[in-house]
Design a protein around this nucleic acid. Sequence first.
DNA 1: GTTCTAGAAC
DNA 2: GTTCTAGAAC
Length: 200
Amino acid sequence: MSKRRSGDRVNDGEATQSKRTKTTGHWSMGLLQTVDDPQFFTKADELVNVIKDKYPKAKFHYLIMPKAKIASLKSVTSEHVSLLKHMEEVALGIISSDEHKQSTFKLGYHAEPSMARLHLHVISDDMNSECLKTKKHWNSFTTDFFITSEDIRHNLDENGRVVLPSRDVCKRYMETPLRCHKCDVKPKNMPELKKHILTH
DNA sequence: GTTCTAGAAC
DNA sequence: GTTCTAGAAC
């Protein structure tokens, strides 16, 4: 019996993956497809689509995406000031609904997003989700890797573009030791962290 | 972004 | 022996 290495694929994993990649493009284009999936599509107006994150990292986790082909914060300029304000207002509308009355939310962008098309995260601050599994998941919402919508808009106001942390700084954010986002508890691993946050 | 799993950590 | 993390995926 030969041993498997981490790169090897088993069963139909590779075939399934390449078939999917051929028909829907690279994984980083996934959000554009999710918009058309009724299971995740939430609402839209003239300027934006709203979807549920396919792998929510909290009880509630939405993404506000412009319809315009804006790849990321890197391509945002002063002409987008009102669009970013609008995205934030749409987010505020969503979180003000009765369904979300019991939760508090964070509105913000990842400093280094993985997925194409600018998207504003609208996430409840419980961080209680089966899909939240890794340190990277945790730190991407609980360190300065997560930049609030307000901070982004002020950044844009002041600079005429969005000045983002360097790759190295982002890397440091992701390597930040695990820490509860609501108290100073420092769990030693993810399972402990996930147990701890249930106490809040 | 997720999945998978080798090797580290316990 | 089991749990957990980290890196490859062409």
